[in-house]
Design a protein around this nucleic acid. Structure first.
Length: 116
DNA sequence: ATTCTGACAGCAA
DNA sequence: TTTGCTGCCAGAA
C-alpha cells in the first residue's frame, strides 16, 4: 500500500501532517505542492492553517520545511521566535537571504514526484 | 446552520 | 516589477 493510499482516509489536517513528516531532512516543499498531492490543489491556504495548528500536536511536525511557492518563509512568525524557522532551515543546510530560500530549486522536494 | 478567517496561488493591471 | 483582487475550502466561532 502506498503512502498516498494510507493517508487518503484521514482528515485534512492529519493528511497534511503525514506528508510534512515525509519531507526529508535538508529538503523543503511548498504549501501548494502538499495541497496538490492531497488531491486538493486549491487548498494551499488550508495547508498553512494545518501547520499553524501542528504546534499543538503531540508529535513534532517539521513545519519549517514548508514555504510558499517562491521559497519565502511566510510562516516564520508562527514559530516561537521570528528567527526560529530560518535557524532550523539553516541547520539543515538551507541557504536563506532576506526571508527567501536561495537554493530553493535545488532543495525542493515534490511529494507528487517523490511519493507513489 | 451561518459567518469568518487565513503560514496560498494565480492572474490582471 | 509590484500591487491588488479573486477563488478557495476546512475549521473555528
Amino acid at each position: 500500500m502506498s503512502y498516498k493510499t494510507q493517508i487518503e482516509n484521514k482528515d485534512f489536517f492529519s493528511r497534511v501532517y503525514d506528508v510534512t513528516l515525509l519531507i526529508p531532512y535538508g529538503r523543503i516543499t511548498s504549501y501548494g505542492a502538499i495541497a496538490r498531492f492531497l488531491g486538493s490543489g486549491r487548498s494551499a491556504r488550508m495547508v498553512g492553517w494545518a501547520l499553524n495548528a501542528s504546534h499543538s500536536e503531540p508529535e513534532f511536525i517539521p513545519a519549517h520545511r514548508v514555504v510558499n511557492r517562491n521559497g519565502m518563509l511566510t510562516g516564520k512568525h508562527h514559530f516561537g521566535n521570528s528567527t526560529t524557522m530560518q535557524q532550523l532551515l539553516e541547520n539543515e543546510g538551507i541557504i536563506i537571504e532576506e526571508d527567501r530560500i536561495v537554493n530553493f530549486a535545488e532543495k525542493f522536494w515534490d511529494p507528487l514526484k517523490e511519493l507513489s
